[in-house]
Amino acid sequence: MPAHLPLSRLKTSLAAALALATLASPLAAEERPARELFGAQRLPAKMVTSPYGSYARGCIAGAVAIPTDGPTWQAMRLSRNRRWGHPAMIALIERFSQDARSKIGWPGLLLGDISQPRGGPMLNGHASHQVGLDADIWFTPMPDHRMSAAEREALPFTSMLDKSKFLTVDPRRWTETRARLVMMAASYPEVERVFVNPAIKKKLCETWRGDRSALGKVRPIYGHDEHFHIRIKCPEGAAGCKPQAKVPPGDGCDASLAWWFTKEPWAKPKPKKDAKPVKPHFVTLSDLPKACSAVLASDSPASEAEATYRGNGGTSTALAFSAGADDAGLAAGMAMDAAVGLPAIVPIPIPRPIQ
């Protein structure tokens, strides 16, 4: 492997190589960590587009890739191969990027992780982002030039927090335009949640003077001081998609936010006396919706270009895969999922996910 590769790209390449090696092992696919199986996929399942399962335990058939570059966005960390999603998510990103430039003067979006080609658990970095309905957006604006692949791997994150203080926004970095960017993201009807650091949520509660009807969608969570995380609803007609509980009424500037500024969320769990070590459990294919087996086994399109989104002013003209032989197995998997029920998962990001 070339010695000049950036560290982040080197780590991703090694992880992918490990996943490919695991696929060749004699261990049954159902017993391997699902993150290795899905992390090894380079192209989506050539099937009718549909998410299966929940945001934190599922997969997606027929995902499309957002182009690495658009007039108002650039995708980052390309070696991770996580710019895949449901066409509704990709269309929203395009529309949001255009609105952000034309309405608030944001130069353009830098896109973090969306999902893997077939969704599913990731080799590193996230608990969610599994069904193509989540997307990370950097707080760093798009630069005035088209970045090289190397620049996209190496550009550092910029935290919006004053790290010398507890949960405090840095006034030198946090701006009114960034506040407007977050609130614009939350304003779209299809957006269910926008995850930010608790300090950023508190700052919005204290300073936002515009329409506060979407403020309740802005949810505090660990990390998320260098980027924010957009989550959209299960698309209409996506029977296999398990929705998250609705956001509570109100603006969220209440006791639920105050809790983040107590010791409880940050306290280390107290070890139980005489507790035996617990063997880590890795999610396997059998833990996912049955339809995900068909998604994983499906044929791929001929190339990435064939499965790349072709939007036009927010109107999706993304490739829609035709129903075929693969969908017979998918239908059987969906029937089994309906019979046994999908697992009850709380779909929230893990603390400080890697971008």
Rank of each mutant, 00 (worst) to 15 (best):
Ala3Arg: 12
Leu5Met: 11
Pro6Ile: 09
Pro6Gly: 08
Leu7Thr: 10
Arg9His: 07
Leu14Glu: 11
Leu18Phe: 07
Leu20Met: 09
Ala21His: 13
Thr22Tyr: 10
Leu23Cys: 07
Ala28Pro: 02
Arg35Trp: 09
Leu37Glu: 03
Ala40Trp: 11
Gln41Met: 14
Arg42Gln: 15
Met47Lys: 02
Met47Thr: 03
Val48Leu: 11
Thr49Leu: 04
Tyr55Leu: 13
Arg57Leu: 14
Cys59Ala: 12
Cys59Trp: 06
Gly62Phe: 03
Ala65His: 12
Thr68His: 14
Thr68Ser: 14
Pro71Arg: 13
Gln74Ser: 05
Ala75Gly: 07
Met76Gln: 15
Ser79His: 11
Arg82Lys: 14
Arg82His: 11
His86Ala: 09
Pro87Cys: 01
Ala91Ile: 06
Glu94Ile: 05
Ser97Ala: 13
Asp99Cys: 12
Arg101Trp: 11
Arg101His: 13
Ser102Arg: 14
Ser102Lys: 10
Lys103Trp: 00
Leu111His: 05
Leu111Asn: 03
Ile114Glu: 08
Ile114Asp: 04
Pro117Ser: 07
Pro117Asn: 07
Arg118His: 01
Gly119Met: 10
Pro121His: 03
Leu123Asp: 00
Asn124Asp: 15
Ala127Val: 11
Ala135Met: 10
Phe139Gly: 01
Thr140Cys: 06
Glu153Gly: 00
Leu155Phe: 08
Pro156Ile: 05
Thr158Glu: 13
Ser159Trp: 10
Ser159Leu: 05
Leu161Trp: 01
Leu161Ala: 00
Phe166Asn: 10
Leu167Ala: 11
Leu167Lys: 09
Thr168Phe: 08
Val169Leu: 02
Pro171Gln: 03
Pro171Ala: 02
Arg173Trp: 05
Glu176Arg: 15
Glu176Tyr: 09
Thr177Tyr: 00
Arg178Asn: 10
Arg178Gly: 05
Leu181Trp: 02
Ala185Leu: 02
Val191Glu: 02
Arg193Cys: 02
Lys203Asn: 13
Leu204His: 01
Glu206Val: 08
Leu215Asp: 04
Lys217Glu: 06
Lys217Trp: 09
Arg219Phe: 12
Pro220Thr: 02
Gly223Lys: 08
His224Tyr: 12
His227Asn: 13
His227Ser: 14
Arg231Trp: 00
Arg231Val: 13
Ile232Lys: 01
Pro235Cys: 05
Gly240Gln: 01
Cys241Phe: 06
Val247Asp: 04
Pro248Ala: 05
Pro248Leu: 01
Gly250Glu: 12
Ala258Gln: 12
Ala258Ser: 14
Trp260Phe: 07
Thr262Asn: 03
Glu264Gly: 04
Trp266Leu: 11
Pro271Phe: 03
Lys272Trp: 02
Lys279Ile: 14
His281Val: 12
His281Cys: 00
Thr284Gln: 08
Ser286Gln: 14
Asp287His: 12
Leu288Ile: 13
Ala291Gly: 13
Ala291Lys: 06
Ser293Gln: 12
Ala297Arg: 15
Ser298Ala: 15
Ser300Gly: 02
Ala302Gly: 15
Ser303His: 03
Arg310Asp: 10
Arg310Glu: 09
Gly311Gln: 04
Thr315Lys: 14
Thr315Pro: 00
Ala320Asp: 10
Ala320Ile: 08
Ala323Glu: 15
Gly324Val: 10
Ala325Glu: 15
Asp327Ser: 13
Gly333Pro: 00
Met334Thr: 11
Ala335Ser: 06
Ala338Met: 08
Ala338Trp: 08
Ala339Pro: 02
Val340Tyr: 03
Ile348Asp: 13
Pro349Ile: 07
Arg352Gln: 15
Arg352Trp: 08
